[in-house]
């Protein structure tokens, strides 16, 4: 018996959050330093950035690590850092090589 599904394959935003696919293969993740330009939330293609109580908030369950936010942030307040660093890492941090 086939499952009862909606006619058009759709899902509510955030449906993927329960299985954060990105966390297993994301190479870098954004770290919010001092980002105050709230517009940066508009650039995230995965809805990982949102505004919570007037501040930019990041949901790493949704983040695929594309780095668009770091590129677009007017303050330069978002930095992409490697998921793995040091002895086990393949993406050395600048200055720590």
């Amino acid at each position: 018996m086939a499952k009862n599904l909606p006619i058009v394959p759709t899902a509510k935003p955030g449906s993927m959050a329960e299985t954060p696919a990105g966390s297993t293969w994301r190479e870098k993740r954004p770290v919010l330093m001092n980002c105050t330009c709230l517009e940066v939330t508009l650039y995230c293609p995965d809805g990982a950035l949102s505004i919570v109580e007037g501040k930019v908030s990041l949901d790493l369950n949704l983040c695929k690590g594309c780095g668009i936010c770091a590129n677009e942030c007017k303050d330069g307040g978002i930095q992409m850092v490697p998921e793995y660093t040091g002895a086990q890492g393949v993406f050395p941090v600048k200055g720590e090589e």
């Binding site: 086939a2 599904l5 006619i7 759709t10 899902a11 509510k12 449906s15």
Partner: peptide, 19 residues
């Protein structure tokens, strides 16, 4: 708002195709 053509796991894809 709905995500259209979302990533569909093996649990559902075949059922969509059946429908």
């Amino acid at each position: 708002p709905q995500g259209v053509n979302t990533v569909t796991s093996p649990d559902f894809y075949m059922d969509y195709k059946f429908r």
